[in-house]
Amino acid sequence: MSRSPDPVVVVVEDEQQIRRFICSALQAGDCHVIEAETTARGLIETQSRKPDLLILDLGLPDGDGLEVIRRVREWSALPILVLSARAGEGDKVAALDLGADDYLTKPFGVAELMARVRALLRRTALARGVESALVRFGTVEVDLAGRNVTRDGETVHLTPIEYKLLAHLVANAGRVLTHRRLLAEIWGPNHVEHVHYLRVHMASLRRKLEPTPAFPAHIRTETGVGYRLVL
Protein backbone atom coordinates (compact mmCIF):
# COMPACT_ATOMS: atom_id res chain seq x y z
CA MET A 1 0.00 0.00 0.00
CA SER A 2 1.48 3.30 -1.02
CA ARG A 3 1.79 5.93 1.67
CA SER A 4 -0.52 8.86 1.06
CA PRO A 5 1.31 12.17 0.49
CA ASP A 6 1.92 14.45 3.49
CA PRO A 7 -1.11 16.57 4.31
CA VAL A 8 -0.89 20.20 3.29
CA VAL A 9 -1.70 22.80 5.93
CA VAL A 10 -2.09 26.55 5.39
CA VAL A 11 -1.33 28.62 8.52
CA VAL A 12 -2.67 32.19 8.53
CA GLU A 13 -1.24 34.00 11.56
CA ASP A 14 0.31 37.45 11.80
CA GLU A 15 2.44 36.89 14.92
CA GLN A 16 5.78 35.62 13.72
CA GLN A 17 6.73 33.68 16.87
CA ILE A 18 3.39 31.92 17.06
CA ARG A 19 3.54 31.05 13.38
CA ARG A 20 7.04 29.72 13.92
CA PHE A 21 6.11 27.22 16.63
CA ILE A 22 2.92 26.15 14.86
CA CYS A 23 4.88 25.47 11.71
CA SER A 24 7.64 23.55 13.42
CA ALA A 25 5.10 21.47 15.32
CA LEU A 26 3.23 20.69 12.10
CA GLN A 27 6.44 19.85 10.26
CA ALA A 28 7.45 17.54 13.10
CA GLY A 29 4.02 15.94 12.58
CA ASP A 30 4.83 15.28 8.89
CA CYS A 31 2.75 18.08 7.44
CA HIS A 32 3.65 20.26 4.52
CA VAL A 33 3.18 23.80 5.82
CA ILE A 34 2.41 26.97 3.90
CA GLU A 35 2.56 30.23 5.86
CA ALA A 36 0.56 33.40 5.36
CA GLU A 37 0.52 36.62 7.37
CA THR A 38 -2.59 38.28 6.02
CA THR A 39 -6.12 37.34 5.09
CA ALA A 40 -5.46 38.24 1.46
CA ARG A 41 -2.39 36.02 1.27
CA GLY A 42 -4.21 33.29 3.19
CA LEU A 43 -7.06 33.24 0.70
CA ILE A 44 -4.70 33.09 -2.27
CA GLU A 45 -2.70 30.21 -0.75
CA THR A 46 -5.87 28.35 0.17
CA GLN A 47 -7.21 28.67 -3.35
CA SER A 48 -3.99 27.74 -5.15
CA ARG A 49 -2.61 24.98 -2.88
CA LYS A 50 -5.88 23.14 -2.11
CA PRO A 51 -4.72 22.32 1.46
CA ASP A 52 -6.07 19.55 3.70
CA LEU A 53 -6.40 21.93 6.64
CA LEU A 54 -6.59 25.68 7.22
CA ILE A 55 -5.36 27.09 10.54
CA LEU A 56 -6.67 30.64 10.87
CA ASP A 57 -6.06 33.36 13.45
CA LEU A 58 -9.19 35.46 13.88
CA GLY A 59 -7.38 38.70 14.76
CA LEU A 60 -5.48 39.52 11.60
CA PRO A 61 -4.23 43.03 10.81
CA ASP A 62 -5.77 43.42 7.36
CA GLY A 63 -9.24 42.09 7.99
CA ASP A 64 -11.51 39.81 9.87
CA GLY A 65 -10.73 36.11 9.94
CA LEU A 66 -14.49 35.49 9.79
CA GLU A 67 -14.49 36.89 6.28
CA VAL A 68 -11.90 34.30 5.25
CA ILE A 69 -14.10 31.49 6.57
CA ARG A 70 -17.09 32.86 4.67
CA ARG A 71 -15.11 33.11 1.43
CA VAL A 72 -13.52 29.66 1.75
CA ARG A 73 -16.84 28.02 2.55
CA GLU A 74 -18.23 29.33 -0.74
CA TRP A 75 -16.25 26.72 -2.62
CA SER A 76 -14.61 24.31 -0.19
CA ALA A 77 -15.45 22.04 2.74
CA LEU A 78 -11.84 21.76 3.91
CA PRO A 79 -11.42 21.62 7.71
CA ILE A 80 -10.77 24.99 9.37
CA LEU A 81 -9.18 25.35 12.81
CA VAL A 82 -9.64 28.80 14.29
CA LEU A 83 -7.21 30.45 16.76
CA SER A 84 -8.58 33.22 18.94
CA ALA A 85 -6.97 35.53 21.49
CA ARG A 86 -10.26 37.00 22.52
CA ALA A 87 -11.86 35.84 25.74
CA GLY A 88 -15.52 35.94 24.77
CA GLU A 89 -17.37 33.00 23.30
CA GLY A 90 -19.09 35.23 20.76
CA ASP A 91 -16.46 35.21 18.02
CA LYS A 92 -15.84 31.48 18.39
CA VAL A 93 -19.55 30.81 17.92
CA ALA A 94 -19.59 33.18 14.95
CA ALA A 95 -16.63 31.36 13.37
CA LEU A 96 -18.16 27.93 13.98
CA ASP A 97 -21.56 29.01 12.70
CA LEU A 98 -19.88 30.21 9.52
CA GLY A 99 -18.46 26.74 9.04
CA ALA A 100 -15.20 26.52 11.00
CA ASP A 101 -14.66 23.04 12.43
CA ASP A 102 -12.85 23.70 15.70
CA TYR A 103 -11.19 26.43 17.73
CA LEU A 104 -8.32 26.95 20.14
CA THR A 105 -8.14 29.80 22.61
CA LYS A 106 -4.73 31.40 23.15
CA PRO A 107 -2.58 30.56 24.96
CA PHE A 108 -2.38 26.89 24.02
CA GLY A 109 0.37 24.28 23.94
CA VAL A 110 1.68 22.21 21.06
CA ALA A 111 0.06 19.04 22.42
CA GLU A 112 -3.41 20.64 22.30
CA LEU A 113 -2.77 22.03 18.84
CA MET A 114 -1.59 18.72 17.42
CA ALA A 115 -4.48 16.81 18.96
CA ARG A 116 -6.93 19.09 17.17
CA VAL A 117 -4.97 18.97 13.93
CA ARG A 118 -4.84 15.17 13.93
CA ALA A 119 -8.54 14.89 14.68
CA LEU A 120 -9.42 17.17 11.78
CA LEU A 121 -7.04 15.46 9.34
CA ARG A 122 -8.42 12.08 10.35
CA ARG A 123 -11.89 13.28 9.46
CA THR A 124 -10.70 14.18 5.99
CA ALA A 125 -9.02 10.81 5.62
CA LEU A 126 -12.19 9.05 6.79
CA ALA A 127 -14.31 11.01 4.35
CA ARG A 128 -12.02 9.94 1.52
CA GLY A 129 -12.12 6.27 2.47
CA VAL A 130 -15.16 4.06 2.64
CA GLU A 131 -17.76 5.60 4.92
CA SER A 132 -18.00 3.28 7.86
CA ALA A 133 -21.52 2.60 9.06
CA LEU A 134 -20.25 1.27 12.38
CA VAL A 135 -18.78 3.79 14.85
CA ARG A 136 -17.42 2.91 18.28
CA PHE A 137 -16.67 5.11 21.28
CA GLY A 138 -16.04 3.68 24.74
CA THR A 139 -18.21 0.62 25.01
CA VAL A 140 -20.84 2.15 22.76
CA GLU A 141 -21.38 0.96 19.21
CA VAL A 142 -23.49 2.94 16.76
CA ASP A 143 -24.71 1.14 13.65
CA LEU A 144 -25.80 3.97 11.38
CA ALA A 145 -27.05 1.59 8.68
CA GLY A 146 -29.19 -0.47 11.03
CA ARG A 147 -30.15 2.50 13.24
CA ASN A 148 -29.05 0.44 16.19
CA VAL A 149 -27.12 1.54 19.28
CA THR A 150 -25.58 -0.85 21.81
CA ARG A 151 -23.68 -0.28 25.03
CA ASP A 152 -21.63 -3.15 26.47
CA GLY A 153 -23.27 -5.31 23.80
CA GLU A 154 -26.80 -4.54 24.91
CA THR A 155 -29.25 -2.52 22.85
CA VAL A 156 -29.88 1.01 24.15
CA HIS A 157 -33.33 2.43 23.57
CA LEU A 158 -33.14 5.98 22.32
CA THR A 159 -36.01 8.32 21.55
CA PRO A 160 -36.17 9.50 17.92
CA ILE A 161 -34.71 12.88 18.93
CA GLU A 162 -31.89 11.27 20.89
CA TYR A 163 -31.02 9.03 17.96
CA LYS A 164 -30.98 11.97 15.55
CA LEU A 165 -28.71 13.87 17.93
CA LEU A 166 -26.36 10.95 18.30
CA ALA A 167 -26.25 10.26 14.57
CA HIS A 168 -25.43 13.90 13.94
CA LEU A 169 -22.67 13.91 16.54
CA VAL A 170 -21.22 10.69 15.14
CA ALA A 171 -21.27 12.01 11.58
CA ASN A 172 -19.35 15.08 12.81
CA ALA A 173 -17.11 13.36 15.36
CA GLY A 174 -14.21 15.57 16.43
CA ARG A 175 -15.88 18.79 15.29
CA VAL A 176 -17.50 21.34 17.52
CA LEU A 177 -21.19 21.64 16.71
CA THR A 178 -22.76 24.89 17.84
CA HIS A 179 -26.10 24.95 19.61
CA ARG A 180 -27.60 26.82 16.71
CA ARG A 181 -26.42 24.30 14.17
CA LEU A 182 -27.63 21.29 16.12
CA LEU A 183 -31.00 22.90 16.75
CA ALA A 184 -31.42 23.81 13.11
CA GLU A 185 -30.48 20.29 11.98
CA ILE A 186 -32.68 18.41 14.41
CA TRP A 187 -35.58 20.66 15.34
CA GLY A 188 -35.57 22.85 12.26
CA PRO A 189 -34.63 26.48 11.62
CA ASN A 190 -37.54 27.83 13.70
CA HIS A 191 -36.14 26.40 16.91
CA VAL A 192 -32.58 27.75 16.90
CA GLU A 193 -33.28 29.77 20.07
CA HIS A 194 -34.56 26.82 22.11
CA VAL A 195 -31.20 25.79 23.50
CA HIS A 196 -32.76 24.23 26.59
CA TYR A 197 -34.45 21.54 24.38
CA LEU A 198 -31.01 20.55 23.21
CA ARG A 199 -29.53 20.53 26.70
CA VAL A 200 -32.26 18.37 28.15
CA HIS A 201 -32.04 15.76 25.40
CA MET A 202 -28.26 15.82 25.49
CA ALA A 203 -28.40 15.18 29.24
CA SER A 204 -30.63 12.14 28.77
CA LEU A 205 -28.45 10.86 25.93
CA ARG A 206 -25.46 11.08 28.25
CA ARG A 207 -27.30 9.20 30.98
CA LYS A 208 -27.94 6.39 28.51
CA LEU A 209 -24.47 6.24 26.97
CA GLU A 210 -21.85 7.70 29.30
CA PRO A 211 -20.47 5.66 32.24
CA THR A 212 -20.29 8.88 34.31
CA PRO A 213 -22.88 11.23 32.80
CA ALA A 214 -21.75 14.19 34.94
CA PHE A 215 -18.14 13.77 33.76
CA PRO A 216 -18.65 12.73 30.15
CA ALA A 217 -15.72 11.15 28.37
CA HIS A 218 -17.16 11.34 24.84
CA ILE A 219 -20.13 13.67 24.54
CA ARG A 220 -18.27 16.80 25.62
CA THR A 221 -19.75 20.20 26.42
CA GLU A 222 -18.09 23.21 24.84
CA THR A 223 -19.42 25.75 27.31
CA GLY A 224 -21.23 28.66 25.74
CA VAL A 225 -20.56 27.21 22.28
CA GLY A 226 -21.99 23.74 21.71
CA TYR A 227 -21.06 20.06 21.85
CA ARG A 228 -18.41 17.75 20.47
CA LEU A 229 -18.22 13.99 20.22
CA VAL A 230 -14.76 12.71 21.03
CA LEU A 231 -14.16 9.22 19.71
Binding site: E15, Q17, I18, F21, I22, A85, A87, K106, G109, V110
Partner: peptide, 24 residues
Protein backbone atom coordinates in the same frame (compact mmCIF):
# COMPACT_ATOMS: atom_id res chain seq x y z
CA UNK B 1 -10.23 43.34 24.95
CA UNK B 2 -7.03 44.90 23.67
CA UNK B 3 -5.20 44.04 26.89
CA UNK B 4 -6.45 40.47 26.69
CA UNK B 5 -5.24 40.15 23.11
CA UNK B 6 -1.89 41.79 23.77
CA UNK B 7 -1.13 39.61 26.79
CA UNK B 8 -2.31 36.34 25.32
CA UNK B 9 -0.30 36.67 22.15
CA UNK B 10 3.17 36.64 23.77
CA UNK B 11 2.05 34.00 26.27
CA UNK B 12 1.00 31.77 23.38
CA UNK B 13 4.39 32.25 21.79
CA UNK B 14 6.22 31.46 25.05
CA UNK B 15 4.24 28.27 25.73
CA UNK B 16 4.44 27.12 22.12
CA UNK B 17 8.13 27.86 21.67
CA UNK B 18 8.95 26.06 24.94
CA UNK B 19 7.12 23.04 23.57
CA UNK B 20 9.03 23.38 20.34
CA UNK B 21 12.37 23.20 22.17
CA UNK B 22 11.26 19.94 23.78
CA UNK B 23 10.11 18.46 20.48
CA UNK B 24 13.05 19.55 18.34
Amino acid sequence: AALSHDLRTPLTAIAGLADTIALT
